[in-house]
């Protein structure tokens, strides 16, 4: 973990309200695991005051973040220019646990809802690098809000999309697509599910996983101040008491959470 003044190498709008930023932060790129995040100071002024947490979207020699403009912080971030420098603290959090040797040949199902795709591309890349069969399900409201389809397809051929309005892929929520995929694919494999997206979606996927006795790792998004376990602002209720999204998470085993 380091606090780095990183140069912005790229900051591009990639869709309706979605942006991709590339940052010159070799230390973080070298050390970050899928599912970890960085705390970024969007403004030099006191407005907004706190840093904002962003999932590490991809790493190469640099790190990439994928973000949606949802408020003052991300609004300011979206106006940053290439060459500007910003404070980036990372990598933070625990990251996803990749499958160990399981009874059957493991297969991973990645489920991304909306901007929830952000931490999952890097995960898909790492899983397929480990030769783990990986299926990706992407859910979006409508066709032009689908994120990372190409990036996922580079990692694995098995990428399925659903849109709420049916303008692309299957129609309906991604949980419906998940049901469908489970019906059509043989489950001779041990299955592990990785999911990131809106809270209701996480809960819905977690329930399906519980029924099927799949391990399910969810990436939670909470408001944070410090990002390093000092302020106790991002507490999450679990079966073993309060945990911190920033330090004990942001990845939690769905079974552990008190939803």
């Amino acid at each position: 973990m380091k606090d780095i003044k990183a140069r912005i190498l790229l900051n591009r709008r990639i869709g309706l309200g979605y942006y991709k930023m590339s940052l010159d932060a070799p230390y973080i790129a070298r050390t970050a695991k899928p599912g970890q995040f960085a705390q970024i100071k969007c403004s030099d002024s006191f407005e907004p005051l706190l840093r904002r947490p962003f999932s590490i979207h991809r790493v190469n020699r640099n790190i990439e973040i994928l973000y949606e403009t949802v408020g003052r912080g991300t609004e300011i971030l979206s106006n940053k220019k290439e060459g500007d420098k910003i404070d980036v603290l990372g990598p933070l959090g625990n990251g996803f646990t990749l499958p160990r040797a399981m009874n059957g040949e493991p297969r991973a199902i990645i489920i991304a809802g909306g901007i929830g795709a952000a931490p999952l591309v890097y995960l898909a890349e790492e899983l397929t690098k480990k030769k783990i069969k990986t299926i990706v399900l992407i859910g979006a409201k409508t066709k032009n809000l689908i994120l990372c389809e190409k990036d996922f397809k580079k990692a694995t051929p098995e990428v399925y999309v659903s849109t709420d309005d049916g303008t692309y892929g299957s129609q309906g929520f991604v949980s419906k697509l998940f049901h469908k995929i489970l019906k059509t694919t043989e489950s001779k494999f041990e299955t592990i599910v990785y999911v990131c997206g809106p809270h209701e979606m996480l809960k819905c996927i977690a329930d399906i996983c519980q029924e099927r006795k799949f391990e399910c790792q969810v990436s939670l998004e909470e408001k944070m101040a410090c990002g390093i376990g000092a302020c106790l602002g991002c507490a999450v209720k679990t079966k073993s008491g309060n945990k911190l999204a920033c330090k004990d998470g942001p990845i939690f085993n769905a079974n552990e959470l008190l939803w």
Partner: peptide, 20 residues
Amino acid sequence: RQGNPMPRICETSAGMLNAI
């Protein structure tokens, strides 16, 4: 002590509220 229910922090103009 378990602390207070979530949410526990909230940003305000040039400041923040906490109820940990």
